[in-house]
Design a protein around this nucleic acid. Structure first.
Lengths: 215, 215
DNA sequence: ATTACTATGTACCGAGTAA
DNA sequence: TTTACTCGGTACATAGTAA
């Protein structure tokens, strides 16, 4: 019996975001003992996964944001598993801060890009404003390549997750990589794309142009 | 670490329905030991949840139908949790075999219907042909009331799951109950509705008429 | 009726190692 | 390198109760 089973059980029984129940009922439903449920719920509470108010006649349970985030990830994986249709997200091109160009030029990254992705990226990233939930849906379930973090004598550089996507731009389909730095600096509603070439130059893109990413 | 974590992990890494990996890689990803993964995978295999072929350089894993069914249920729960929009399924009215009427008349059922649903159903069920996957989506996550099985001196009667739904019929919204016998006799693409009145009489329904169920 | 403590037995995890 | 044994130690589940 893992935390996940508990969270999924609560999810399935929620009404208006709240579940009123008792440890014995949950124990019966989940085929375990009242004591185990009592302990598990305390564990979940300590782990910041649920909020609980205990009353003489039972308990009221709710899921926390943390739990919902975890469940959202699993939902994305399952949606991906059961949907045959390809999914897409559109993004609007916006100006970056030139950070992308700086990092792409670091040798420790370049070497790994070449080895793990098979190409050396153009020195710059394409920043897209997107719906973060929709992006999660596409990236989760997609297998990622991990660029490891490393250190130089001056500083440390964090790892990067790389997801292969297909991008529809000016009527053409182009392969690209969505990069997600482990210590990301910007909001989750901006993602960065890299490719062996300059998207802006090759397709004459400007801020505000819309691209569609397809899984 | 429960089976579910293993299944979800595999789901997230599947490519074309197959995952090629090693126990060590999985152990790192799932933050446990190689030995635990080895044992867990054997357990999952024994439980009929995965199929495995072990090679000198690793393993190839796939999910079985049984595992997919379990995951589908969780997916339905999560979809329900994260979707604010109401979901609907349409069904086409078809003739039953009169079985519904027979069972509705059994005292052991009637008493429980009255106590647990608050009404005594009309003596007959409305049979609807539906898309079984879509129905799963609506019923899962919806809380159910369980009518217990029982025995008489002659025979035993199985339990029934009851789901409250709203039905759109001839422009009106009516509450009804979807009943799912634990030992169901017909295919999953036919469901049965009960209500305190006769749908056919009250709304002048005929075979082939379309109803919409809303969660 | 609840929830949740303590004590005890068991099942699980992982280090070491074989194949 | 693999996967998967055996075997300790520990963490977990439950019975018995308290509150």
């Amino acid at each position: 019996m893992g935390d996940l089973e508990i969270l999924l059980y609560i999810s399935s029984k929620l009404e208006e975001g709240i579940l009123s129940t008792t440890t014995s009922v949950m124990a019966t439903d989940l085929d375990t003992s009242q004591q185990t449920i009592s302990r598990k719920l305390r564990d979940c509470e300590d782990a910041g996964l649920i909020q609980r108010s205990v009353t003489p006649s039972g308990m009221r349970l709710q899921l926390t944001e943390k739990a919902l985030d975890i469940l959202k990830k699993h939902h994305a994986v399952l949606t991906n598993l059961f949907s045959n249709t390809t999914q897409s997200v559109s993004g609007v091109l916006q100006s970056g801060l030139g950070e992308g160009r700086y990092y792409m030029a670091i040798e420790g990254y370049q070497k790994q890009f070449r080895d793990k992705l098979g190409f050396i990226p153009f020195l710059g990233t394409l920043n897209l404003a997107v719906n973060s939930h929709a992006v999660d849906m596409i990236l989760q379930g997609n297998s990622k390549k991990i660029i490891d973090g490393f250190e130089t004598s001056e500083r440390t550089y964090g790892g990067i997750d790389c997801y292969r996507v297909s991008v529809e731009v000016k009527g053409k389909n182009v392969n690209a990589i969505v990069i997600v730095p482990h210590r990301t600096t910007h909001e989750k509603n901006v993602i960065e794309l890299i490719a062996p070439f300059s998207f802006r130059e090759k397709f004459g893109l400007e801020d505000g142009d819309e691209l569609v990413m397809v899984k």
